[in-house]
Amino acid sequence: MGTDFLQYVISGITIGAIYAMVAIGYNIIYSVTEIINFAQGEFVMLGGLFAVFFAGTLHLPLYLAFICAVAVAGCIGLAMDRFIIGRARESSVLSLIIITIAVSILLKGSAMLGWGKDPYSLPAFSSGGPIMVAGAAIQPQALWIIGICALVVISLTLFFRKSVYGQAMLACANNPQAARLVGIPVRYMVFLSFILSAAIGAAAGVIITPVSMMEYERGALLGLKGFGAAALGGLGQFFGALVAGLILGLAESFCAGYLSSGYKDAVALVLLLMVLFLKPEGLFGNREAARLKKF
């Protein structure tokens, strides 16, 4: 009994960390531009597949493949803003939702043409079998996932709290006009947000590919779960996204273990609906701040 519980906790935290990273991707763009980028899940997929390309086809060492994949995804994120979103900054929320959905369809279609429909895998970051703790198995890759997720959250929090650039990015979100007046290059800050968010999504994609493989269709569902985590934690809240991601992962894992594995995906969404209905600004969102936002 105890062993099973531990196993559910481990797999819940592992997948929760991935949801958290996807949620953070949504949050970065949302913080700076108040846009929800529905193509976020596709960056996860692209990250995984590009890593497969660099490691499998070009035979680069794994760490280089990781960096290259994240860099390429960052460039795609930049291009997405430079050539598409940037032209539609003044559009209505609905138009922006449609535009990002269209981009996600394009990215998914290109991935299908580029990699075909088969799933791909990567070798684990460190070799060796699972570590047994009180009868429960922990894969070394799960530790990598949790570690990298923690690293991303800590460095982003520091970036936004302490660094000039981070502060400048947040200023753009609060009031772009005022930000421009005090000399912040708003345009570049928006670019930066898209690059960062695509790169973090891609990193999440690379680190789960050894565990769960990756194929062109995977993005949408991961995007949806990450979106759920972002909303649950409160849009724009990095710490909230981390906690919400873990809550989602654990809830799914426990539901699959103790209730019904078929309704696993529903649990996360029921949780999301309850939070939206009872505390719409999210678990960690600020009600006053949420009211100030445009949407």
Binding site: I36, L235, L276, F277
Partner: peptide, 24 residues
């Protein structure tokens, strides 16, 4: 409860509901 929400939040709530129904 949903229609008290706005914009993205409303989109999310309806989306979540739609997916739950599909799972059922």
């Amino acid at each position: 409860p949903s229609l008290r929400l706005k914009g993205h939040y409303l989109a999310m709530a309806t989306l979540g509901f739609g997916v739950i129904v599909n799972i059922i």
